[in-house]
Amino acid sequence: MELSLATRAVGEHTVLEVGGEVDVYTAPRLRERLLELIDGGARHVVVDLGRVDFLDSTGLGVLVGALKRLRSAGGSFALVCDKEPLLKIFRITALDQVFPLHPTVDAAIAADSTGA
């Protein structure tokens, strides 16, 4: 399935819903969209991976890039993911200790708002 990207605002958070396959071919489009959001002033970004059915190292690299960029801008970055195959990818790469991972968008925003 092709990559799909949809953005919505929830309070001061920007939620980017990603669907389909994030791989070496599609990851540049995800990178561009994240850069557009950050350059456009978004400082609290939540990426919802709920409809992602494939994610590779290139996609993970893009997500880490966005995390670092937002951190250095004084912002925050969180991921929403509750699918076991994807969670396993984060555990194997130790990226589960780098990203704030939440099961729902509401949980991600609540945790970010309380500074958790």
């Binding site: 190292s57 993970l60 690299g61 880490v64 670092k68 250095s72 194997i92 130790a94 780098v98």
Partner: peptide, 28 residues
């Protein structure tokens, strides 16, 4: 394998991170 501290380091380029993560996935 890169540890969480190294992965989050500003100095690590996206290409280097992707390569390291790719090998971690293969090995894992």
């Amino acid at each position: 394998a890169l540890g969480p501290d190294e992965l989050a380091k500003e100095s690590l380029s996206e290409d280097a991170l992707t390569t390291g993560v790719g090998f971690a996935l293969l090995a894992g």
